[in-house]
C-alpha cells in the first residue's frame, strides 16, 4: 500500500511539489484527510494552514471520502445552449450516483457532456443520461 510518505518522496524534488502530491494522495486514498494534510505539511515544511488553504481552494480536492461513483455534468454555457438544464431533474431524481457540476469539458460542439472517471460522454439526452446513471 502506497503511503503519504511514499507519495511525498516521489515528488519532493520537483519545483512546487504540493499540487502533484495532493493529486496523488487523492488518487490513492480517495480524499485528502486532516491527517494527510498534517503529514504533507510536516514533510514540505509548510504550516497545516497553508496546506489546508490549498486543498480548500481547488474544486477537485475532497476533504471527506465519497463512497458513491461520481458523474460530472457540464453546466457551462455551451451545454446550456444544448439543453443540459432540462437533464438536471433526471440527475437529481436519484441518489445512488453523486452528480456534480463541472464547468466545461471542451466538448462544447457535442454537448450536453459528462465525465465519469476519465471517460467522456456527449450528446446526452434523457434516455442516454438515465442509461449512463443506471450503468454506473
Amino acid at each position: 500500500m502506497t503511503s503519504i510518505a511514499d507519495i511525498v518522496a516521489e515528488h519532493e524534488h520537483r519545483e512546487g511539489p504540493l499540487l502533484p502530491i495532493l493529486h496523488d494522495v487523492q488518487k490513492v486514498f480517495g480524499h485528502i484527510s486532516e491527517d494527510a494534510m498534517r503529514d504533507i505539511a510536516h514533510a514540505l515544511n509548510l504550516t497545516r494552514a497553508e496546506v489546508y488553504g490549498v486543498v480548500s481552494f481547488y474544486h477537485d480536492f475532497r476533504k471527506e471520502a465519497e463512497a458513491r461513483s461520481v458523474l460530472k455534468l457540464c453546466r457551462a454555457e455551451a451545454c446550456k445552449a444544448r439543453g443540459v438544464d432540462a437533464l438536471v431533474p433526471i440527475a437529481e431524481s436519484q441518489s445512488r450516483v453523486k452528480v456534480e457540476a463541472i464547468y466545461c469539458l471542451g466538448l462544447c460542439s457535442v454537448g450536453p457532456a459528462a465525465l465519469v472517471d476519465d471517460q467522456v460522454y456527449a450528446r446526452l439526452d434523457s434516455a442516454r443520461l438515465r442509461n449512463l446513471l443506471e450503468a454506473m
Binding site: 512546487g16 488553504g53 481552494f57 474544486h59
Partner: peptide, 26 residues
C-alpha cells in the same frame, strides 16, 4: 506537464503561476 485542480481562475496567468508554485490560485 502540471495538472490543474478544477479552478477556472487558474487560466489567469498570475493565478496559474501561483498554482504551479503549489499555492492557492490567487
Amino acid at each position: 506537464v502540471r495538472v490543474g485542480a478544477g479552478a477556472y481562475i487558474c487560466g489567469e496567468e498570475t493565478s496559474l503561476l501561483n498554482s504551479l508554485e503549489g499555492k492557492r490560485g490567487e
